[in-house]
Design a protein around this nucleic acid. Sequence first.
RNA 1: GGCGGCAUAGCCAAGUGGUAAGGCAGAGGUCUGCAAAACCUUUAUCCCCCAGUUCGAAUCUGGGUGCCGCCUCCA
Length: 490
Amino acid sequence: MQSQLKIFNTLTGKKEDFKPINPPKVLMYACGPTVYDLSHLGHARMALTFDVIQRYLRFAGYDVTFVRNITDVDDKIINKAKELNVRPEEIALKYTDTFHKDMHDLNAALPDVEPRATEYIEKMLAFTQSLIDAGHAYEAGGDVYFDVLSFKTYGKLKKQSLDEMIQGAREQVRSQSELKELKKNHFDFALWKSVDQKEPGWQSPWGWGRPGWHLECSTMIKNVLGETIDIHGGGEDLVFPHHENEIAQSEALHKKTLANYWIHNSFVQVEAEKMSKSLGNFRTIQSILESYSADTIRFFVLQTHYRSPIEFTEKSMESAKAGISRLIRAAQFAPEANGKTTDNIDIAPVEKLDQEFRKAMDNDFNTPQAVSALFGFADTIFVTTDPNTAKKYTEELRRYASVLGFTLEDNRRSLDPATTAKLKEIVQSLTETAADTDDASQLMEMLLSAREQARADKDYKRSDMIRDRLLEVGIKVMDVKGGKATWECS
RNA sequence: GGCGGCAUAGCCAAGUGGUAAGGCAGAGGUCUGCAAAACCUUUAUCCCCCAGUUCGAAUCUGGGUGCCGCCUCCA
């Protein structure tokens, strides 16, 4: 189904109709992590933003090739390795693994291709040589710099001309530029940096050295996807200089547009400041996952449009948790069969959901509105009395929710060992016989039937006690009219 | 200093010219042994301030105020 998708393009500063170069194919690239430390919520937001974009494009019928790189050569990695007295590769490998775990735990799909910078050194050298040959780069003392004056549209993504940038640069920048005598222009940037022979590096026509950061993306895009792609994105802070420099390198060499649509997500803030490594105000993905599910984190992130900043607070996280719980309950909803069922399912509510959902997502991936559509559909589910209809609706809810990456999985089977042990204690303290199982669902079964018996005996003191003890360990018991009580982790 | 962005109820957050989505929290009610969940009702005469354009603006224009980001590694 062809969509009317509109995307806000950083390059033009406007929402534009999305027209892929070669529909239904979509070539998409997002800048991945530099693997030198654990990822934090800010990285998670970027990953989730592009995960959802990619999911929606596929849902809308596009044939997406999604590429996300791993920057595994960088000063930060090398410095950390020196600090810990290990080889840089170990650091890179370790944090590549933790990043993959983070993505897995957040239910973020793997990219179709995940190139690593170190696999493309040869190609980067060739790229650099071509730029020198074309007169866009020059060698100086073993370094190679891109000559920004040779690329007349430099600054088009940032929307500021080179002259304006030079004039507007703050004091600090000007004084720094005086130190860099090797460069012709302060805004010239390194394609290749010479380093001491003892340092990690590669041999190049200009001596021992390492590639500049911006070069890897240009090179990998060219070699994995081609000279012009449909979508390129990343965090807002990559607009300048990273993406601007990628454009300069690639477009100077190929004389072609690098990417038609540039998408940038806004930040996660803490107390009105950007969450970042350097400010030290970050929360790692794994630490947040200790308290909140992937669905809750996604809900927290996706209830704000990707181009607006999000303030991280415990209150917002709790609010998100309560919100996603309602959707999970809706996805689990199953009314008791009341004798008669129908195969004549009214699909009008599903059509309404589809329409609202697509309309929201087609409008520059408006996930807050898409989530709202999910809630509207949940309302319908809760008032459904026919089991067949409810089954169909809950399947549809899960299907649309999955486009946003929500699993809506029932979390009641995910009791951790500590809680299970506590359940066992409760069983033993309530019954004379010792519980001879460590199976959480069996233990729950025992407790719920004990409570059911108490209620049948009108021993409400005992039944309430069981309910209270369960609540203490984080389990909420809910009676179902005419049926067995249900429960969930709070 | 240059450039860019944001300001909507107690909190979070859509809406970008036609009279304020949704979530959380709160209040009242139904259901329940009591709860919880679910359901019903309810919660911004108004969208930072001041001018202006318009039949009509939270939405457009101009001017303020406050906050944030980039210009150095950064998602």
